[in-house]
Design a protein around this nucleic acid. Structure first.
Length: 440
RNA sequence: GGCCCCAUCGUCUAGCCUGGUCAGGACAGCGGGUUUUCAAUCCGUCAACACCGGUUCAAAUCCGGUUGGGGUCACCA
């Protein structure tokens, strides 16, 4: 950046009227990336001018989401509800200059307001440049003299946004496409207060599978970022995923850390059309990130789900669990489905599941010859391979696997035998032989 | 409905600006291999330029229209 260029300032301006939305997260991400890329600053402003709908508790979900995602903002977050005096002075000035006026109203409902402050609309065409879409022109006549404040102390959204962006010296307004139609009236307001027009970039929307805007109403909790945190997604995966919807690096590369995104980001490579939120791809990405995690982190997550289980056993089956999950919430699924219960004790099962138990005695003999010291995956395999090949692998391996796991679907018998140990393996085979005899 | 935005495989997208390679990659799907199940993994495979017209020797790419989808129309943000 050269000295005569203004320092880049972007901002994220969420409203604490609901849980932090997935689309807000992406807007925050792109604003963050752009600011960091250009050595500028990224600010956070809480838009809580609506006293009825704004809730302090919901502000927490904003901070939580930002910090979970690792999107650090500069300085303290600003709260519009604490800036009333600033808006009032602008309002007074506008009224004095005739760009706004107090308007007598007939109350919309009984006991309603009898006067509001309206903007004196110059009624003209407004053309602005959008970094992503090019020039956009609106006729502002249809906006009429829109209301900008309920009173001198109660500014409305458009006024507050324009004043704050001006006061905070925001240079780039990066926000969702749903704000395109708000832009002309904000530009009118900027001109009225003598503010510079920021550079606009309207991001394509994140869509639900039915191609409509993702909304809490229609799509439930899956629209909030907190949901993904609870589901055990990794923030790195979420960031990566969010970046890739609506933006691409221009190469075949798919995996990016936040810092790498900063380096490669540019508004030029942002998509114009809306994009469907594809959970399958998120899952794939999350797996990629889980695979890169340090062992201790994964162990900790597994222990959280199996707090009473034997630690040594858990550690042994960790790779198997890792192979079967896309998110940490899936660990709970493994526990609840009981699919790995056989690692913690003799499984129960229908004898008929053994199918060909007649091969079990010889299997046992071969395994018994192995030294406990060499009781590992490869030796076990070797010990049985010739026999299994001769008799038919399915005929030998299937009953062995069922004897050890009691299940139709499970990891392969060699792996299981190696993990549960020689003694336990022989014990389970004996058990299978015994119940098979009783049945026949 | 008015205004605005958008349009390449099922999904995310490359290619479009600077017309000319079998329209490339990823996810999902399907098929196969890997010590015969499940998972994982590897390999392979299916699959798209919305439509019509124009410009041009040549159009996914430029222009116009049509259709379709979306957004937005508060004393919410």
């Amino acid at each position: 950046m050269t000295d005569n260029q203004k320092k880049v300032v972007t901002r994220m301006a969420p409203s604490p009227t609901g849980y932090f939305h997935i689309g807000s997260a992406r807007t925050a991400l792109f604003s963050y990336l752009f600011a960091r890329k250009h050595g500028g600053s990224f600010l956070l402003r809480i838009e809580d001018t609506d006293k009825e709908r704004s809730k302090r508790e919901l502000e927490t979900s904003i901070y939580d989401a930002m910090s979970w995602l690792g999107l650090s903002y500069d300085g303290e977050a600003l709260r519009q509800s604490e800036r009333t005096a600033i808006y009032t002075s602008y309002l007074e000035k506008m009224i004095a200059e005739g760009t706004a006026y107090v308007s007598k109203e007939t109350p919309v409902e009984p006991g309603g307001r009898t006067e509001v402050i309206r903007f004196k609309n110059p009624n003209r065409q407004v053309t602005f440049h959008d970094e992503i879409r090019g020039d956009i022109t609106f006729d502002t006549t249809e906006l009429k003299d829109f209301v900008i404040a309920k009173s001198l102390e109660e500014p409305l959204y458009h006024l507050a946004v324009v004043i704050d962006d001006h006061e905070m010296a925001v240079t780039h307004v990066i926000r969702g496409e749903d704000h395109i139609s708000n832009t002309p009236r904000q530009i009118l307001l900027q001109e009225a207060i003598g503010a510079m027009r920021p550079i606009y970039a309207h991001l394509p929307l994140i869509l639900a599978p039915d191609k409509s805007k993702m909304s809490k109403r229609k799509h439930g909790e899956t629209v909030s970022i907190g949901y993904y945190k609870e589901q055990g997604y990794l923030p790195e995966a979420m960031i990566n995923f969010l970046a890739l919807i609506g933006w691409n690096p221009g190469t075949d590369r798919e995996i990016f850390s936040l810092d790498e995104l900063v380096e490669g980001f540019s508004l030029e490579r942002v998509q114009k059309s809306g994009a469907v939120f594809n959970v399958e791809k998120l899952n794939w990405l999350n797996r990629e990130y889980i695979k890169k995690l340090p062992r201790e982190r994964v162990s900790a997550e597994i222990e959280k789900v199996f707090p009473d289980a034997d630690k040594a056993t858990l550690e042994k089956i960790e790779p198997l669990i890792l192979d079967r999950i896309a998110t940490f919430a899936d660990i709970r699924g493994i526990k609840e489905s009981g699919e790995f219960d056989f690692f913690f004790g003799q499984p129960g099962y229908e004898t008929s599941l053994l199918k060909t138990p007649e091969f079990l005695p010889e299997t046992r003999q071969l395994l018994e010859k192995l030294e406990p010291k060499t009781w590992n995956l490869e030796p076990i395999k070797e010990a049985l391979w010739e026999f299994a090949t001769e008799k038919g692998r399915g005929k030998v391996l299937w009953p062995l696997r069922v004897a050890l796991t009691g299940k139709e679907k499970s990891p392969d018998p060699f792996t299981v035998a190696a993990l549960i140990g020689k003694e336990e393996t022989l014990k389970r085979i004996d058990h299978a032989i015994e119940i098979a005899q009783h049945t026949s």
